[in-house]
Computed example of a mutant assay.
Amino acid sequence: MRYLENFTALNVFRKAPTVDMFQFNPHLKSLTITETDLSDLDPKVFLPIPNLQSLELSDSNISSLDFLVQANLSALRYLKLTDNEVLMINETIFKSLPSLTYLDLDKNPFTCDCSNAAFIQWVKNNKQTQVVNAHRYQCSSPVDKQGSLLLDFDIDLCRDDGSFLCFISSTCLVVLTLFTSFIHNFLRWHLSYTFHLFLAFLYDSRKRKKGVPHQFDAFVSYNVHDEDWVYREMLPVLEGEQGWRLCLHHRDFQPGKPIIENITDAIYGSRKTICVISRSYLQSEWCSREIQMASFRLFDEQKDVLILLFLEEIPSRHLSPYYHMRKLVKKRTYLSWPQAVQHPEVFWQNVQRALKTGDALTENTDLPTGAAGC
Score class of each variant (00 low, 15 high):
M1D: 14
L335A: 06
K207G: 06
V131S: 02
R77G: 10
M88F: 13
D42L: 05
H214G: 08
I291H: 02
N126H: 04
H184G: 11
K44N: 13
K80T: 13
T8G: 01
L235T: 06
F46M: 08
V132P: 02
V329L: 14
M88Y: 14
L306M: 12
D265L: 09
A360V: 15
R245F: 04
N133T: 10
I307C: 07
V224T: 14
S140M: 09
K29D: 05
T362F: 14
W348F: 15
Q352Y: 10
T369L: 07
D217L: 01
D66Y: 00
D83G: 05
S284P: 06
V143Y: 11
L87W: 06
Q215E: 13
H250I: 02
V12N: 08
C114G: 06
N125E: 13
S170T: 07
T357D: 12
Q302I: 11
P255C: 00
T273F: 03
T365M: 13
L248E: 08
S163K: 00
H250F: 10
I307R: 08
D300V: 05
F299Q: 06
A218I: 03
Q215R: 11
A372R: 09
T92I: 10
K95W: 07
T357I: 11
F347D: 03
N25M: 15
W348T: 01
G269Y: 10
L298F: 14
P142E: 06
G147C: 00
I314Q: 00
F198A: 12
K257P: 04
Y222L: 05
R271Y: 11
T34Y: 00
L10N: 13
V132L: 11
L367R: 11
S163Q: 00
L81V: 14
V174K: 03
P48G: 02
Y268A: 08
S115V: 09
S169Q: 07
W189E: 15
P26C: 06
T333L: 10
F22C: 07
S39Q: 08
D20T: 13
F310K: 01
Q121N: 15
D20G: 05
N6H: 12
D42T: 05
T369W: 04
C114N: 05
V69D: 12
C158F: 03
Q53V: 07
E345P: 01
L38D: 02
D37V: 01
V19A: 06
G240W: 10
D359Q: 09
I307M: 12
N185I: 12
E363W: 11
D152A: 13
L176Y: 10
V174N: 01
S99Y: 07
I168D: 00
Q23D: 09
F94H: 08
K331H: 14
G370D: 02
H135Q: 14
F347G: 07
S221H: 08
F201E: 13
I168F: 00
R297L: 08
F347R: 03
A9R: 04
R279C: 03
I120W: 06
V341G: 04
I307L: 14
D66K: 09
D160C: 01
S54W: 00
F198T: 14
